[in-house]
Design a protein around this nucleic acid. Structure first.
Lengths: 192, 192
DNA sequence: TTTAATCTACCAAACGTTTGGTAAAAAAAT
DNA sequence: ATTTTTTTACCAAACGTTTGGTAGATTAAA
């Protein structure tokens, strides 16, 4: 029988989907194997352990955000407002259409005291997000300190809205927050 | 050895402490028994199952917030600002000094797709918080709809800050958010 | 002496992981 | 071009451990 090989990307995508729905601890190797069309033991042909798999998933997702989302912020071909729009619409797309809410927060909170390797990746994700957001505010003419604080507040607001969206099963929390972010961003004074 | 009987409150408090540190799935019955000074088998003298215990813990905590925190909002002996202060300082105390961050959010996200009974309690907690917060804004003269939206935004902001505080291990996120909340609340126009 | 609380010992099920083996595909040797 | 060898992909079964939960003996209090 001709056996089509699973490539890394497919495995990571399938596994992410399971981890998103069940979290880390409640996800079994059986779940992960099934999601990849395999039996429990067979998935060890591709991965070394459940923990390693999660680390790979987190790394890949962080890399995706760095290269495809946060990088837009430094694209000098776009206006400052357009850069924010890119960032916002990517956030909206990911939070709304994928089944998960914010994966980094979910896994981060669940494994905070048990899996320091996960925590490390997740923290670096947020620090990159802060940096991108702060850079945008600086482009608007705010001084470094104010931009930093405003960036952190913005991220906190978005994350809080995502959480409520998940828990209360109402997407309006996030929609409203993102719209509000765009509005107040436009009102922020611009340096010419 | 003298065996003093454990009362419900102590059991719930000890168990809460474990659940806060490890979450639901990573907490074992052994952990819970040890935290109560018992061996695994003995704790079943007090509880019927791990799931039932968690439900009791969530219920008790929700009841605590209703009676001791949110209720302050309706206390006509206090000024509107004083009522907000009560709410804020309670929040700060709980989030900062207990080991856990926001228990409801942590457990809510972890068990969202696996334990609907938990979700139900957690949702009702947030709805009570919304109601209290909206009532405060109404006392400030805002119309019902605006007050509701502002209340939800406020809760989202606080929760986002608590999450970042936990994940990045920096209490400043929350402190800043709560200070900001008090400031903007005072600036909101008051109806005489 | 009765009753309540705790310990010890245990169970069945589920967990993550390893093993022995098989069949097909790819590579190497003829 | 055919055969032999090696590699790849997978399965079924089992491993040792841990899980939530139970039953009976033991201890302490009333």
């Amino acid at each position: 029988m001709a056996k089509p090989k699973l490539d890394r990307k497919t495995i990571l995508r399938n596994s992410l989907s399971v981890f998103k729905e069940k979290g880390y601890n409640a996800t079994t190797m059986n779940d992960l194997a099934t999601a990849n069309g395999l039996l429990k033991g067979s998935i060890y042909h591709y991965i070394s352990s459940k923990e390693e798999l999660m680390i790979e998933v987190l790394d890949a997702l962080k890399e995706h955000y760095s290269n495809k989302v946060f990088s837009k912020v430094y694209d000098s071909k776009l206006s400052v407002e357009e850069r924010l729009d890119e960032l916002v619409s990517r956030a909206e797309e990911i939070y709304t259409f994928e089944e998960g809410g914010d994966f980094f927060v979910n896994i981060g909170l669940e494994t905070l005291n048990t899996n320091p390797k996960f925590t490390e990746i997740i923290q670096s994700f947020f620090n990159e997000w802060f940096k991108a957001m702060a850079f945008l505010y600086e482009q608007k003419g705010l001084d470094v300190d104010t931009a930093k604080i405003l960036a952190e507040t913005t991220v906190a607001e978005i994350e809080g809205a995502v959480m409520l969206m998940r828990l209360l099963k109402d997407p309006n929390y996030l929609k409203r927050t993102l719209q509000n972010l765009k509005d107040t961003f436009r009102q922020t004074e611009h340096e010419y």
